[in-house]
């Protein structure tokens, strides 16, 4: 932590003098700026797609596989700009690729149905089954992959503030505790490691039943049925939208501002220091599809 911006305090977030975009997303800035005309007209640099279906989960939180399959096809068509689902998947993978799936493996894990559906979609798009592997963990499997496909579950994290897209690769860094607490700022470094860099073509977030506090150990009072899948080609933009959704849910839950704590400083650092994508919501276009109630963004 000492090699960058020493002495950051809560007051810097309130002033917006550090991590300004993040301060805005979390609602920590003292005087929230209303969007200026210039900001409204600013050119979007990234697009994030959200698809939701009220039928995606039942009362016992079981996944409706048919609904989830349709959601995946819909969101991938939107991300790829294709009419046909198979063609959409083929935008990001080729038959000669080895695809490493990166689900959240435990503690509020990615729903198995989502991981298995992605596997089916990939085989349907012409990727041989043997070329689709689980690359999560510290086995080094990711090194043999030509494409890495993050499939994280959406969740807050008590040590890093947030634990979804950026943290999805923490095992690939070889030493997870080295990226916890204040050191979580450097999670973006892992994405630039030689065996990782450039392999992420699309990010797909399981937002069916996210966790908005106390992650990763699950406290079900902080789980809710969002019934969504969030996807995009810019991992940082996807993360920023996910943070916004969780932050909005927290505020609604308490009926007052309840900023994620500690602030997920990895988000803006991934943008400004590691140049992995756009963290500024003002520059991210959000496209919503399907169920609108409770979209939160």
């Amino acid at each position: 932590m000492k090699d960058h911006a020493p002495g950051i305090t809560r007051r810097d977030f309130i002033r917006g003098t550090a991590f300004a975009a993040l301060s805005t997303t979390l609602g920590m800035k003292a005087a929230a700026e209303s969007p200026s005309a210039a900001a409204e007209e600013e050119k979007f640099t990234s697009t994030v797609f959200i698809v939701r279906d009220q039928k995606a989960l039942d009362d016992l939180h079981r996944v409706n596989r048919e609904a989830a399959s349709e959601m995946l096809d819909k969101v991938m068509c939107a991300v790829a700009g294709k009419e046909d689902a198979k063609a959409a998947w083929q935008t990001f993978v080729k038959p000669e690729d080895t695809v490493g799936l990166m689900p959240t493996s435990h503690l509020n894990a990615t729903h198995n149905e989502i991981t298995e559906l992605v596997r089916e979609k990939l085989t349907g798009a012409g990727i041989p089954a043997k070329n689709i592997v689980n690359a999560q963990g510290r086995s080094g499997v990711h090194k043999t992959c030509t494409v890495l496909m993050p499939l994280p579950n959406l969740k807050a994290h008590w040590l890093t503030g947030f634990g979804t897209v950026l943290k999805n690769y923490i095992q690939l860094g070889g030493n997870p505790p080295a990226y916890h607490a204040e050191n979580s700022k450097d999670l973006g470094r892992i994405w630039n490691m030689p065996d990782v860099k450039g392999k992420t073509k699309v990010v797909i977030v399981d937002a069916l039943r996210p966790l908005f506090d106390k992650g990763p150990q699950v406290d079900p009072q902080y789980l809710w049925h969002y019934n969504g899948i969030i996807a995009g080609t810019d991992p940082i933009a996807v993360e920023a939208v996910c943070v916004k959704i969780v932050q909005a849910k927290r505020n609604a839950f308490k009926g007052e501002s309840w900023p994620l704590s500690p602030p997920p400083i990895c988000l803006e650092a991934a943008d400004k220091e590691y140049h992995l994508g756009c963290s500024d919501l003002a520059k991210i276009k959000i496209v919503r599809m399907g169920w609108e109630e409770g979209a939160l963004v």
Partner: peptide, 16 residues
């Protein structure tokens, strides 16, 4: 510990 305070009420990145 500081890591707990960070969760309850983030004050600073350093252990001030």
């Amino acid at each position: 510990r500081k890591m707990c305070l960070d969760y309850f009420y983030y004050l600073a990145d350093d252990n001030i």
